[in-house]
Design a protein around this nucleic acid. Structure first.
Lengths: 158, 158
DNA sequence: GCTTGACCTTGCCATCATGGGAAGGTTTAA
DNA sequence: TTAAACCTTCCCATGATGGCAAGGTCAAGC
C-alpha cells in the first residue's frame, strides 16, 4: 500500500518504458537533464507516471525517431506546450532539420558511390592487387574525398 | 641539433597534420590506440614523421572520409600492409560498409520524407495549429516512425 | 645572452545519446 | 520467509573529436 493516493493509473518506470518505447534508462536521463519534468514519487521513492507523462514520452520518442537532437526536442516540447505558438516557429525548426538530414544524406551518398566505383574495379578474388586500397592510397596533397557531415543524433537500432 | 641522425625529411606533428590532413590531436590519438605505429622521437621527445608515415596518415584520412570506423581502418591497414592479401578480403570489407551506408541513407531518407510530409501541411504562419506537432503527438502504441540506424562514425565538418 | 612566440609534450575534461553494471532498497507472489 | 522482479542512485564506457592547462623546446630577433 505504498501507492500514492493521487495516482489514478500510476505506472512504474518499467511500465512507462513499455507504454512509451523510451527506455527506463533514458527516461531517468531525460528527467535529469530537465528535458521532461520531475516524475511524481511513491513513498518508497519509485517514480510514478500518469497518462499525461506517457504522452510526453511518446512525443519525445517520435521526435528522436525523426532524428531531432535532445536540444531540438526541448524546443519542440516548449512549442507544443505553448498553445499560442505561431506554427511558423515549428515549421522553421522542421525545415532546418530537413536541411540537416539532407546534408547528411548527400554526404553519405557521395561516400557510397565513391566506394562503389572503387569496388566495381576490384576483382574480389585471390589475387592481391586491389583498386580499393589504391583508392585509399592517395598521393595528391589536397586530393581527398568528401567532407563528411556535422555530428547529428542517431538512435541505435538494437 | 636535437634532430635524430636517422631522420632525413623529418616532420613535426604540426607539419604531418598539414601534409596529411589529420589533426595533431588525432595523430596522437591514433598512435595511443595502436591504429598506427609509435612515431620516432627527437631527443627532446618531439614526434618525427617520415614520408612513409605521412602516407599511412593519408590512407587513414581517406578511409575516414569514406566513413570507415577506426576498427575497420585497422583491418584495412592490415590488408594494405599484407602484400599477399586476396583482394576479395578488401572487397568484402568495402561491400559491407556500402551496405551500412545504405541502411543509414535509407533511414534518414525516411525521416526526411516523413518530416517533409508533415511540414507540407503546416501553414507556417501566425496561427497556432500545427500538423507537425500533431504528427509527433502519436497516440497509437506501436505506431511510431522509423527505427533509425546503428551508430556509425561521422567526421565533423568544421 | 635573453626574451618572445610558436611550437611540442602529457593529461584531463567535454561532447552526444545510450547502455551496462554494481550496491542496495521495495514489492509481490509463492 | 524467501526469492524474483522490480526500483533507486552512481559511476563507467562507447566513438571520434575538440579544448584547455601546465609545462618543456626551439628558433629568431635584440
Amino acid at each position: 500500500m505504498s501507492m500514492d493516493s493521487t495516482a489514478g493509473t500510476g505506472l512504474n518506470i518499467g511500465d512507462a518504458e513499455k507504454a512509451s518505447g523510451v527506455s527506463a534508462k533514458m527516461i531517468r536521463h531525460y528527467e535529469s537533464i530537465g528535458l521532461i519534468g520531475k516524475a511524481a514519487r511513491t513513498d518508497a521513492g519509485y517514480r510514478v507516471y500518469a497518462d499525461k507523462d506517457i504522452h510526453v514520452l511518446r512525443f519525445v520518442r517520435q521526435a528522436r525517431n525523426l532524428g531531432f537532437s535532445i536540444k531540438q526536442i526541448g524546443e519542440l516540447l516548449a512549442l507544443w506546450n505553448d498553445h499560442r505558438r505561431p506554427s511558423s516557429k515549428v515549421k522553421q525548426l522542421a525545415l532546418a532539420h530537413i536541411e540537416e538530414l539532407n546534408t547528411r544524406i548527400v554526404d553519405m551518398q557521395t561516400m557510397k558511390s565513391t566506394l562503389e566505383k572503387l569496388a566495381q574495379h576490384c576483382h574480389g578474388d585471390d589475387r592481391p592487387d586491389c583498386p580499393i586500397l589504391q583508392g585509399l592510397e592517395i598521393t595528391a596533397p589536397d586530393q581527398c574525398l568528401q567532407l563528411p557531415a556535422k555530428r547529428m543524433p542517431v538512435v541505435r537500432r538494437t
